[in-house]
Design a protein around this nucleic acid. Structure first.
Length: 232
DNA sequence: CCCTGATTCGC
DNA sequence: GCGAATCAGG
């Protein structure tokens, strides 16, 4: 397998979302965990806490890599400028304590016993031209980029996907939201009319471009990147 | 042991 | 540029 633009995109997305290299490798398929890590580094996606990178020993007394016993005393070796960069540690999926289950008081005026209390949906900051969620003005959290292909189709007979949108059916005005996993028999694309200016239909734009919730709020279901571990 | 990411270096 | 081998922490 080679690193096509598309695969690189997927790698970036998943890496930024905090999936482990193993998960990414498994998801992409055809590459090893090491390949993913190597590529990520070459792409400059360094960041992310490494279990091994905790301390930085200024002295390299110990032979860290005996694979090639340097014959040279390495004279012109510039001293490694220890980057003091604390690096903006992206707050990952911090398990919000959520110790306070939000008293329903505010949302439940006295006497108002409306039963159909919809599930606590993410608060909509504003609505884009197509009706999808959009970030609030002051909210400059990086928008979750492309597309979390969730396993939406429970693997149906091939006849079932006979009229589904395939790769060949993609045009600039049909939704390219993936349904299922590439390579699987039921994999196809959404196929709806796109939200003008976007690669996805209105519905999927809503999923691709999510509003960042105000501090403290927690989306009940996690962003669910991909459908979890692939069932093979 | 398992997992993780980082790094090196032959290809 | 790629990724196996290796390192090293949890």
């Amino acid at each position: 397998m080679s690193w096509t633009d598309e695969r690189i995109d997927q790698l970036k997305g998943m890496w930024e979302r905090g999936l482990t290299a193993s998960q990414i490798a498994d998801e992409l398929g055809g590459v090893s965990r090491n390949a993913v890590i190597g590529k990520a580094h070459r792409l400059g996606l360094q960041s992310r806490p490494s279990p091994v990178k905790a301390n930085e020993t200024p002295k390299k007394a110990a032979a860290p890599t005996p694979r090639k016993p340097a014959p040279e005393p390495e004279a012109p070796r510039a001293a490694a400028p220890v980057a003091p960069a604390p690096a903006p540690v992206r707050a990952p999926a911090a398990p919000a304590p959520a110790a306070t289950p939000a008293a329903p008081a505010a949302t439940t005026p006295a006497g108002a016993n409306d039963a159909p209390a919809p599930a606590p949906q993410p608060r909509i900051i504003s609505v884009g031209p197509g009706g999808f969620l959009r970030q609030g003005p002051g909210d400059q959290q990086a928008p979750i980029p492309p597309a979390p292909p969730r396993r939406l189709v429970p693997a149906k007979p091939s006849a079932e996907i006979a009229d589904k949108t395939s790769l060949l059916d993609l045009t600039e005005r049909i939704c390219k939201w993936p349904m299922g996993h590439p390579g699987e028999p039921d994999f196809h694309f959404c196929g709806e009319q796109v939200n003008p200016g976007f690669p996805y239909c209105v519905e999927h734009c809503g999923r691709a471009y999510q509003a960042q919730l105000p501090r403290g709020t927690r989306r009940p279901p996690p962003p669910l990147p991909f459908g979890g571990p692939r069932v093979r």
